[in-house]
Design a protein around this nucleic acid. Sequence first.
RNA 1: GGGGGGAUACCAAAGCGGCCAACUGGGGCAGACUGUAAAUCUGUUGUCUUACGACUUCGCAGGUUCGAAUCCUGCUCCCCCCA
Length: 404
Amino acid sequence: MSFKPVDEQLKIIKRGTVEIVPEDELVEKLKRSKKENKPLRIKLGCDPTRPDLHLGHSVILRKMRQFQNLGHKIILIIGDFTALIGDPTGQNKTRPSLSPEDIKENAKTYLDQAGKILDREKTEIVYNSDWLGPVTFEGVIKLSSKLTVARMIERDDFSKRFEANEPISLHEFLYPLAQGQDSVHLKSDVELGGTDQKFNLLVGRDLQKDDGQDPQVCLMMPLLVGTDGSKKMSKSYDNYIGISEEANDMYGKALSIPDDLIYSYFELVTDIPTDELKNIKEQVEKDPRNTKHYLAYTITRMYHGEGKAKKAKEHFEKTVINKEIPDDAPTFEFDEGSTVRLLDVISETGFTQSNGETKRLIKQGGVSVDDEKVKDINHEITFSSGSEFELKVGKRKYARIKSA
RNA sequence: GGGGGGAUACCAAAGCGGCCAACUGGGGCAGACUGUAAAUCUGUUGUCUUACGACUUCGCAGGUUCGAAUCCUGCUCCCCCCA
């Protein structure tokens, strides 16, 4: 196959990147690749501890996909061995080690999800236990002699934890070495990672040099800011949009991001052509509301297709903007002629955790029947022949209740 | 090896014999508002009960006491300092 001209490739590669270390080496690698008609080896390590991928992960996976589209070889490392350590990056706690069974299960889930973004056929998948597993204790000692303690503890992750009197296990120091050893083993040309991975990626360069290899180029992508608009997108902050989420949730969550994130979301997580991004920038200024709807639509479309994306848009307009009951609200039936307390009706729907919570909701005006707020916790509903009510509990829970 | 400090609800962190279901902040939930599921403001945040109230909860197991998250004993886990 023939590769695109280097400058064209570079333009695609650089979309959204924060830093390429060093950029001129990347250019050299691309030139050589084109000249020799040999794809670059692009490496991404993934940690099989959190099987729920979200848009934050998609930033890097999409970059991998772009390399793939340019004809390069992408290699996905399932960090089944490194997961035994747990990447300390960005952590304020030691991660628990996982059992081999968990890791296997998680890796599968990971691949299923990553397959929504990557071309699975053209992706090489490797497990780093294959080469890290057989390393002897002697090998570990030799490897660990290549990094100093000073260099390790100057890292933010560690120094903060150290100052806060939080535990740092010795084995966590081995993580960057293990990850770097992956690069040596795979002879990678480029490794991708978030900006928080810079240290780990650079260790890979050092180890490769030490091994006499042409060192990898490190390409850092920004950490996507979550829907709260401040912290990085992460499951533990609950500010994420999962790539396996329902279309409706995806749409709604995308719409909840602050306006000043609209552009970067277009740049980092959508397939909008790079040339169109300029227009998007103008649109955001002129009409943030509709541009954000377009963003929500685009994201939903990428993972669920046009049809579901349109429905999600309608669903949002119907329930949130017009505050109507959605078509797919569940139905609950009660005996004809019976009189049931609202409290028990809600309990029946399973919308709340306890009666205490239900009462609280009612008192606070969070429950309405047929569009009318009910604030009396003793309110009763009589089901006569053919009666049917629309019940709304909290912001987003709807049900139809009727007699049967 | 020696010395010191700590374990409290989803998280962080007060409380140190009754006034504690437990201050406060974050988070969550709800209301108002809004183009929005954002921001902001307000309320709320153990279980059961219409309510009075009852019950379970402060690392684990016992004990002292009319009464313990608070005192004592043992156990488990964690952090710091010195060596």
